[in-house]
Amino acid sequence: MHALELQALRKSFDSAEGTVAVLRGVSLVLPAGQSLALTGESGSGKSTLLHIAAGLERADGGQVIVAGQDVTALGDAQMAEMRRGQVGLIFQQFNLIPSLNVAANLSFQARLAGRHDTAFTQMLAQRLGLEGLMRRYPEQLSGGQLQRVAIGRCLAARPALVLADEPTGNLDEATGDAVLALMLELTALAGAALMLVTHSPRLAARCDARAHLRAGLIEDAP
């Protein structure tokens, strides 16, 4: 079973200049437990594709299958359930919950999905180097620390699919490398598939597979 399967995805936006086709029939497959780097220039539709895969946005056409379930036509409530249970999201801006401390942020999605495993979360916290930061609030953390919490939150829920949108874009190179290494390692440990959206060929090279998005279509990776 594939963690993610996209078939002939199409998406357009209305703008002042008229309708702009961002995705023009994108198809790709991400097997379970694998990692895929999605690259492309700014405005090529990478984030739109990721948002559609995550159930944050709806495609105009095509099919989205997450962990064997066709989610294309799900209603809002079922889509939210799918996000809770199957998908883990990691953003460039971290998007932690500012009112909860690190411990609560880490376990949040897992508890939301009803599969909180204290030992697993503790193990993740240890591996992510967050043990001493558990009572701190997001605003008291550095960028690297914030992203490690975001990764921990995502993986603690044991999702089938991890979608990461420029997760190291706000970090310096060394920290970014370290964070990505951890993400790849822990994603594998959690048995999840990873789709990584990035500009960086260097980071993309560390994934199992690569796909390049140009003019709304997947082309062979450069």
């Binding site: 409530a77 889509m79 939210a80 996000r83 809770r84 249970g85 953003f91 009112s99 949040f108 939301l112």
Partner: peptide
Amino acid sequence: AQLAPLWALGLTARQ
């Protein structure tokens, strides 16, 4: 900005 992560994590806009 505070609510968007909750929505992304699986709560509906209605909730």
